[in-house]
Design a protein around this nucleic acid. Sequence first.
DNA 1: CTGAAAGCGCTTACAG
DNA 2: CTGAAAGCGCTTACAG
Lengths: 340, 340
Amino acid sequence: MAAKIKDIAKALNISISTVSYALNDGPINVHEDVRVRVIETARELGYRPNRIARSLASGRTMTLGVASFVMTEWVATSSYFQGCLRGIVTEAKRMDYDILLYTHDAEDPDRLVDLMTDGRVDGLIVIAPFEGSPVLGRVAEGNVPVAVVGGNSEGWAPSFNSDNHHGIRIAIEHLVELGHTRIAHVAGEPSMKDAMERLEAFQSNLARFGLPVRQDWIIGHHFNAENSYTEALELLSKPDRPTAIVCASDDNAAGVYRAAWELGVSIPDDLSVVGYDDSPTAEVLLPRLTSVRQPLQQMGAAATVALIELLRKQQAQGRTFETELVTRQSTARPMEVRIP
Amino acid sequence: MAAKIKDIAKALNISISTVSYALNDGPINVHEDVRVRVIETARELGYRPNRIARSLASGRTMTLGVASFVMTEWVATSSYFQGCLRGIVTEAKRMDYDILLYTHDAEDPDRLVDLMTDGRVDGLIVIAPFEGSPVLGRVAEGNVPVAVVGGNSEGWAPSFNSDNHHGIRIAIEHLVELGHTRIAHVAGEPSMKDAMERLEAFQSNLARFGLPVRQDWIIGHHFNAENSYTEALELLSKPDRPTAIVCASDDNAAGVYRAAWELGVSIPDDLSVVGYDDSPTAEVLLPRLTSVRQPLQQMGAAATVALIELLRKQQAQGRTFETELVTRQSTARPMEVRIP
DNA sequence: CTGAAAGCGCTTACAG
DNA sequence: CTGAAAGCGCTTACAG
């Protein structure tokens, strides 16, 4: 039978409140010698505080919920998710919180909302929620503080994003400076705000440079490598193909690399590729991937800090982070420009 | 103010036990019309069950703890961790459990043990514990059921592994069949059982084929790409270099790829590379990586199933999974054999 | 500084 | 089937 504070109190013939004060070093002081004896007998009895009981009594769980709207898929494959999660874990650790990872996702929104508001967490970080999903609003109504990373909180929560328009703009400027005029796009999951903004930015920036926006050169509409591979294979095997591709994620770029490799299309000689995220994948791909860096870890960390602030002060500010282009080896002048 | 079962009971003028029975559909039956009215007013009042209170009363939390001994590092970079986690999440979801991810790791074992035994989880899955760590034993003493994936549980828990000896053997047999005699190894983190077994198997299998085991051809001793890159750069720039490398993980192989790329060493023409894990990285690398597959998802899933069984029946069996070689494009006959 | 007691929001024998 | 009550293991005003 595990020891409880009652057992310690009994052994020492003192009250359980004193034991609690001694163990927690507050909120009320305890005579030094009493404190010492409490701690000692706690150790002797192998006492382990029950966090559930403590949470119920105190109303704080010291755990933060993390939900992705596509958890099952992302948990293993998304370098975006990984980057955010690392920032979250690092910061949560500093603040002494643990992470509750919901296994259910937005496939079943009602269920997800129930789980998120069942009292197990002090607050929630939602990663890349879908546009127009009712989940955020209902969680907020359930009085659970939320911070969002990578997506629109639709006014329900502070959100932490990077500037997608800027990110795509610098990618395209880079390609245009190199002399590219035939530029394609691998778009991301349309239900996610980041993907839509990047797509819009892609189209508007091509237009800005007077370049054609060809619908058949906008492929993908997913955030994974597999899909990009299949569609890039088709795109690149046509004679009339682009000389550069801007991808909505590094994972997408990985799919393009594979397609190019199989078709004997050389990167960057025959095809320049720009990724998005600057995730670890960008360094695994060879030639190393030129990528629009968004500071995922920072975004995850900032969301965590904001959430904890929200718990304490009832308010916190969201933030949009700057993006920058990390130029590596996957982009070069296009053939026709280079040859003369 | 959020509604509680007391409020529902009051509104309906019935007892809270009846409300509880109605809401949970058990363990005692309730008149159908009462049940319906309870559920209806619960909805009207916006009632949300408090899982913390329920856990305290029932003794079950419906959450499973997942700990890696190197959480902060792995959460973002280890494809091994990801693979396991995916299996765990998938299976936990089916069984209706959520996952508590500990942010602290074995850097501070006392802290970790305290967190693991604080009552927030019904059981624990520990991923790749270090050899000889006191954590598992102390958690078991704390009466928290544990399952281990990828590592030695030292008798404390059912563990789920793959057969490292077999895995390395088939890798080396494959290379020997291709004609390689100059084979190097990128070893993994020595404090992990898998890494040590693979290293031993590497040495014994080379010996079995009468091939030299050169200490200067055993590099790495980490499970990450960065370190492998640096060391492979050195190894491969010597004139007297191996024609094949067996890596302790796909992440290690990624480092070797990069080194080879930068040195202009062509894979598989100048160098055959075999990875280990068959993680998503194996498909991202180009040429696609020949890799020893260990069924990480299955291992994670099996550990989860076993853990839940352990909760119910007090006992469960560990299992060692078979490995198989997934032959892709990163291995070929060595130059000297091919040319004649 | 210490103690007696209420309370956190549920579940679950135990009577009826 | 329903109710009154104890209990899960803590925290925390409130008196003293």
